[in-house]
């Protein structure tokens, strides 16, 4: 496991590279992990580390990294945007290719990370695209977060006011600054409507069957490109309204994803 900074030296991105840990199983596969954002980043960090270790054990070269303005990467959350995060994913793909000497990279994303990976895979070619409990409809996602925010606001006495400019909230949104324009650009996303991938194969791996995942499954099936849907029942209660951080643990779904990417049962 090698932690390092990469990309633009003025605004570097932080990543952790996991080389294959089993000498007999080197797959010449690069896998980039795309984290969810904000509160979900914090509670799933451990699970993403576990996933990286599992895939490295299965022979893959894995890089997990923080988008600009998140985690240990440079920048403030105040200035993040969907376009910036998509361009960060492309920088990370290039970095992984250089670091691991692999020609093609697969993307594995969780929640908003899956959505960002999907949006990136509309523009560039990747090997596999694995969408783990993706945010399918941006509007529903924001509504879900707003519900959590409302519950916490009344419980914790936090101002929930928006000043009306691009939905900016001076006292933050779920503990994070509310960057101008982010909320509205997330609301425009609907993967089950417009999404067309350039990935060689797309996997939708979900912890539970809910209508938005099924809508995306149907959309991807209609597209006619190589696609696989996997249900791996596991922890996936996103959008809970508990005020304390509960670290997210998963097992089934990590194995299902590892098998999807590497073709090897972990």
């Amino acid at each position: 496991m090698n932690p390092f900074y990469f990309g633009d030296s003025e605004n570097p991105l932080f990543g952790i590279y996991h080389p294959p840990t089993n000498a007999n199983k080197k797959l010449n596969e690069g896998v980039l992990l795309c984290y969810p954002q904000a509160r979900e980043y914090e509670i799933t960090h451990w699970a993403m580390r576990q996933l990286a270790s599992l895939m490295a054990k299965a022979g893959a070269h894995v890089l997990r990294f923080d988008y600009s303005g998140t985690g240990d990467s440079a920048g403030d959350y105040e200035s993040v945007s969907i376009d910036k995060w998509k361009s960060d994913i492309q920088i990370a793909i290039d970095e992984l290719k250089d670091t691991a000497w692999v020609k093609k990279v697969s993307l594995v994303g969780l929640r908003m990370g899956a959505t960002l990976a999907a949006l990136t895979a509309e523009e560039i070619e990747v090997k596999n695209l694995i969408l783990w409990d993706p945010v399918v409809t941006g509007k529903d996602y924001i509504n879900e977060l707003s519900h959590v925010q409302n519950v916490l606001s009344s419980r914790l006495g936090i101002s929930n006011a928006s000043n009306g400019t691009n939905g900016h909230r001076p006292d933050g949104f779920l503990g994070y600054p509310s960057p101008p324009g982010l909320e509205s650009s997330i609301k425009e996303i609907d993967l089950a409507k417009n999404f067309q991938t350039k990935a060689e194969k797309t996997f939708l791996v979900v912890s539970q069957e809910i209508p938005e995942y099924l809508r995306l499954r149907d959309h991807l099936t209609e597209q006619g490109n190589p696609f696989e849907y996997r249900l791996a029942p596991d922890n996936g209660n996103w959008g809970n309204t508990k005020e304390n951080w509960e670290i997210f643990f998963a097992q089934n779904i990590l194995q299902a994803i590892t098998e999807s990417v590497t073709g090897i049962e972990s």
Partner: peptide, 15 residues
């Protein structure tokens, strides 16, 4: 802070 990583709750430690 508890089991959270070094970025802290809401990335507070980074800021």
């Amino acid at each position: 802070a508890g089991l959270l990583n070094r970025t802290g709750p809401y990335r507070m430690y980074v800021d």
